[in-house]
Design a protein around this nucleic acid. Structure first.
Lengths: 357, 357
DNA sequence: TCCATCGGTTAAACCGTTTACACGGACGAG
DNA sequence: CTCGTCCGTGTAAACGGTTTAACCGATGGA
C-alpha cells in the first residue's frame, strides 16, 4: 500500500515529482533525469529514486510533460464509424503500429459528416498529436477542400503530421502524406476475372458520383470492359451507398423492375454483395449457378458467404500510415504511397457456357 | 490566411493566448475568461477578442489547459481488439456518448493480455482521463485482481472513474462502476427456446473455464436444462475459445470423432456459430433441417446466416458506461447495472418431431 | 461630497515537467 | 601541487494556460 501525498486539507492527491524528490532526498531535476534515463546518474541515487517512485506509486502527469515541450506520444485516427469492418481493420492496424512504437491512440468518429470531420481535426490540433490520420472517403466540394487545406497547414504548424489513408491527395501545396490502395487495379482485375469466365453483361452495384472510392472502382470496371472490347452499358451501373441494406435494395428493385439482363454482379463492396445475395436468394436465384457475384474488400462477411472478392490490405494500410508519419521527422512532409490489391477466388463465380447462336 | 506568430528565429509557431491578447489589446486573463465564457465581459471587448482569435486561427493548448487544473474532457476505452464486432459495437456506443457529451475518446487495445491491460491503465492514469472504461472479459487470477484493485484506487485518486463493462465486479472494496448484460438470462432463454422445440441433446460450443462470459452463458444453459428436467451431460460441453476458427474446429472434430449424438447446437457466440455452420455444411448437414443452431450476441454475421440468437445491447452498453461515469461527479463511485438481453428468432431452429418409441 | 458597490480588467501565482546553465568535488595529467 | 576535465547534481527558467485577489473608474445612495 503506497503512501500518498496528503495536503493539509485532508484529501489525498496523486503524488508529483516533487513528492518523489522530497521522499528520495534529491532534487526534482534528478528524478526527472533518472526517470527519462537520458543522463548519467550514480547507482545509489538511482535506486533511491526508484524506490521512492515505487513507494509513492508515482506516474508522471502527461499534460505537464506535454507542456514542457516533450512531444506527447500519441497518434490520432479519424474515421466514419468504428463498427464498419473497413474502418475497424484500418484502425486495428493503426493501433498495432502505434502500440509497437510506444504511442497512445486517440480515436474520433465523424459519421461521414464533413463538418464533424473538420471539428474533430480542430480537437486533434489542440491535442498536439504526433500524427493525425484521416481514413476513408468523403464527399469533397471546393469549400471543404479549401478548409481542409487550411487545417492541414495548421496541423503542420502545430507539429502534427497529417496522413490521408485511402483517400486521394488534396493538392500539391497541401502538406500531407497519402497512403492509398489500388481500387482501380483491383476492380480491373476482378472484372477481368468475370469477363474471362465468359460474362459480358455485368451489373455494377454502388455507383456514387463524387465519392472517390466507388468512383475509382467503377473506373477499373469500365477499363476492364474496354480492354476486353465488351460494350459498356451505363444502364448496368446502379446507384447506391456502400451499405448492406443498399445492396439488398438495389438488387431487389432491379430484379423486380425488368427481366434479368445480366449474368454477373460486381458489388461495390462486400456489404453490398451480402445484401444483393440475400435479395437474389429470396427470388430463388442461386449463386453461382444462376448468377455470379463478386465483391470488394475481403472483409469478414465475404468468407461466410463464399464470395470471390478483392483483398484490400486494411491493417497494412493503418500500419503504413503510422510508420510513415512517425518516420518523417519534419511535419508537413509530402509523400504518396499506393498499396497493391489482389483478388481472392472463392466460390461465387461460374463460367458462363456460351449458348449456341 | 491567418497571420502567425513569428519569433525572431524565423520559423512560425502556433499562436498562444498571449498572442491573441496582444493582438486584441487586452490581457491574457481577459482572453481566457471570454473564451471559457464563464465571466461577464463587455460586448466590445468580447468582439475584439473573437476577431483576434479568428485572425490568428488560435486554438488552446490542451496540455496547458489540462495542467492548469481543468479536467481534460476525455474518456478512455480499453478493449481486446478493435476488429472484433463485439468490442467494435461497444466502442461505437462509447464514442457516440462521448461525442454527445463533448468528450474526446482515447482507445487502448490489449490483445487479451492482462499484462498489457494493466500497462494500458497506467497510461490512462498519466493521461488523467475522466473515465476509464474496461470492456470484455479476461482471465482473472488472484494476482491480477490484486493489482487491478490497486490500480482502481490509483485511478480514483487521479480523479478518473473506472468502469467495468461486460465483466463482473472486482470486489466490494474496489471503487468502480460495473455495467453488465444478462449473459445467464439470455442463455437460459435461448436454451429454453431449443428445449420447447423438443431438443433434448444440445451441444454447447465454447466452454472455457476461468473466463466469466462463457462461464455465465454455460450457467444459463445448465439452468434451463435443469428447469426442464432434461439430464445434463458434461460430454456435450465442448471446450474452445470465442473465435470463428474455433467453432469450425470444435464442430468438425466432434462430427468426425463419433456418431452424432445431438440434435441442436448452442454456440457460445455468433462467430463460433458461423464456424460451426461451415463445418456442418461441409459434411452435408443442413441447418435447420438436420441440425438446429443458435448463437449469442446478434452481431453482423448472424443476420447473414439467418441465425436465431440472443441480442446483446452492445452500443447501449457503451453509452451507459460513459453516461454513468460522467454523471458520478465524485470518482470512485460504486454502482452495478445489469442490461437485459432477449432472443431474436430467425431461421436456424426446427422443432424436433418425436420419433415414436 | 464622500463612501460603498459593482462590473470589467489586470498582474501574478500556480499547475508538474523538462532542460539549460551553474557548481562542487574527484581525478588524471603536467 | 595545481589546473583542467568530467561526472553528478542542484537551481531556476521556461512551457501555455486558468484563477485568485487586487485594482480602478463609474455609478448610486446617504
Amino acid at each position: 500500500m503506497p503512501r500518498r501525498a496528503m495536503p493539509e486539507d485532508g484529501r489525498p492527491r496523486p503524488s508529483t515529482i516533487r513528492d518523489v524528490a522530497r521522499h528520495a532526498g534529491v532534487s526534482v531535476a534528478t528524478v526527472s533525469r533518472i526517470l527519462s534515463g537520458t543522463y548519467p546518474s550514480a547507482p545509489a541515487t538511482r535506486s533511491k529514486v526508484m524506490r521512492a517512485v515505487r513507494e509513492l506509486d508515482y506516474v508522471a502527469n502527461a499534460h505537464a510533460r506535454g507542456l514542457a515541450g516533450v512531444r506527447p506520444k500519441s497518434v490520432a485516427i479519424v474515421v466514419n464509424s468504428v463498427i464498419s469492418p473497413h474502418y475497424a481493420h484500418v484502425a486495428q492496424g493503426v493501433q498495432d503500429q502505434a502500440v509497437r512504437e510506444g504511442r497512445l491512440c486517440i480515436v474520433g468518429t465523424t459519421g461521414g459528416d464533413p463538418e464533424r470531420e473538420l471539428a474533430t481535426i480542430q480537437l486533434m490540433r489542440e491535442e498536439h498529436a504526433e500524427a493525425v490520420i484521416l481514413v476513408g472517403n468523403i464527399q469533397a466540394d471546393d469549400a471543404y477542400r479549401e478548409r481542409m487545406a487550411e487545417y492541414a497547414r495548421a496541423l503542420a504548424l502545430a507539429g502534427s503530421q497529417l496522413v490521408l489513408c485511402g483517400r486521394p491527395p488534396l493538392g500539391p501545396d497541401v502538406p500531407a502524406i497519402v497512403v492509398e490502395y489500388d481500387n482501380t487495379g483491383g476492380a480491373y482485375a476482378i472484372t477481368s476475372h468475370l469477363l474471362s469466365a465468359g460474362h459480358k453483361r455485368i451489373l455494377f452495384l454502388g455507383r456514387r458520383d463524387g465519392y472517390t472510392t466507388p468512383e475509382s472502382r467503377i473506373a477499373g470496371y469500365r477499363a476492364a470492359l474496354a480492354a476486353h472490347r465488351v460494350p459498356h452499358d451505363p444502364g448496368l451501373e446502379v446507384e447506391g451507398t456502400m451499405e448492406r441494406s443498399e445492396g439488398y435494395r438495389m438488387m431487389g428493385e432491379r430484379l423486380d423492375a425488368r427481366p434479368r439482363d445480366f449474368t454477373a454482379v460486381f458489388a461495390g463492396n462486400d456489404l453490398i454483395a451480402a445484401g444483393a445475395r440475400a435479395a437474389l436468394r429470396e427470388r430463388g436465384l442461386r449463386i453461382p449457378d444462376d448468377v455470379s457475384l463478386v465483391g470488394f474488400d475481403d472483409l469478414p462477411p465475404a468468407a461466410d458467404i463464399d464470395l470471390t472478392t478483392v483483398h484490400v490490405p486494411h491493417e497494412e494500410l493503418g500500419r503504413t500510415a503510422v510508420r510513415l508519419a512517425l518516420e518523417s521527422e519534419t511535419p508537413g512532409t509530402v509523400q504518396h504511397f499506393l498499396l497493391g490489391t489482389h483478388i481472392i477466388v472463392r466460390d461465387s463465380v461460374r463460367p458462363l457456357l456460351h449458348s449456341p447462336g
